[in-house]
Amino acid sequence: MVEVLSEPAGRGSYSGALLEVEDLHVEFHTRQGVAKAVNGVTYSVNPGETLAVLGESGSGKSVTAQTIMGILDMPPGRIAGGQIRFRGVDILKLPEDQRRRIRGEGIAMVFQDALSALNPVFPVGWQIAEMFRIHRGSSRSDAKKKAVELMDRVRIPGARDRVNDFPHQFSGGMRQRIMIAMAIALDPEILIADEPTTALDVTVQAQIMGLLAELQRDSNMGLILITHDLGVVADVADKIAVMYGGRIVETAPVHDLYANPAHPYSKGLLESIPRVDLKGQELYAIKGMPPNLLDMPSGCAFHPRCPYRREDCATAVPPLYPISGSRGSACHYWREVVDGSR
């Protein structure tokens, strides 16, 4: 559930959520100006919970994740405000050495393209074993043994024989499994998966999502699943945060959002999924282009593309209106959206 919506957590107070992102602002200083990539994002994840962060490219979903992970390129990136609390401690204020220890041990990340994310010149087993050698001070042989166990755990066939192979010798799905094995090596409490299946075949996608869900069940870790694929989300996520233009525009338990979206953008996303029963009809597409981060539309960032827009949408930035329980929508006219009148 998304506590901060129903009862905004006061600064510094530890509400009990494992990871809390609060009012995060991230901007990029470029030659053309300041690009505001993340504008006040708030979400939280509990142990064993899966939060799906949904949005198109440029919506700020990956930048938020990179900020949590501490792998944002700074400069040009800059954290302009907000907190990221891991077990109640604002990790943005921690010295780099303590921050580093959290990476891998507390929060780990799986990237989209495992071929480029794995180091091409080191054997995969070596790369997994490095986690144990650096964080736990294990010996080479112990670490390698654990690497084989992990490769077994993510079900890489013949792990023992393949531990010395290089990333390019594996298929895409197997590489992503290695990436996952590396991320879960130290039993992190939070796993961030940034579009983990985007680069894979559909059948392999399902296997990888199944693997992530299974690993999560076994270890009770919190999972942040970043994706633009609504199909991936439905089966595994507990709650969804839909991002647009660097803000969360809708947040809801997964089934509520699918049943009845409360923001025109989420609604547009759902309607643009191809459906078998509507075969032959023209596919719905949200009109217009994603917002330019250097020159955000005034008011609600979605208003130029929105079928529900009124005059005040161009002037007043909609807050995240609480709807019920953990649901919230950043639309002045969310009632109309929910009612389905257009």
Binding site: M69, G70, I71, E96, R100, R101, I102, R103, G104, E105, A108, M109, F111, D113, S116, A117, L118, N119, P120, F122, E130, M131, I134, H135, M182
Partner: peptide, 21 residues
Amino acid sequence: SDYVRTAIAKGLTNRRVVGVH
């Protein structure tokens, strides 16, 4: 590059990220 970002995300020391990866 992505693999350097991965090395940082693994929680390696800066010296190891640069000196090895």
